[in-house]
Amino acid sequence: MEAPQYVAARIQQALAEDARTHELGIHVDVRGDQLFLRGQVSGTEQRERLGQVAHEAAPDLRMHNEIKVVVVSEPGEDEHLD
């Protein structure tokens, strides 16, 4: 059986290299038969694509897509550099 660390590394590589995603900052954890994805992206579609690519890379694992979609808010307070 492939060690979970190698499975996680393979999934992470797929998320970075697959033309559908090219997402470098996703944290991938494999625990037993479970796969956890964490991180932040800018839209729900990208989150779904990441889930899809991860699933294809490890179809036997039960996936938990915990990636958060960052809501871009209005600019807040200015910072004064004096």
Binding site: G25, Q40, V70, V72, P75, G76, D78, E79, L81
Partner: peptide, 15 residues
Amino acid sequence: ALPVLGKAYAVYCLD
């Protein structure tokens, strides 16, 4: 980086 700021942009004033 947008995910660090969590907002459309930051504003820095050089005083």
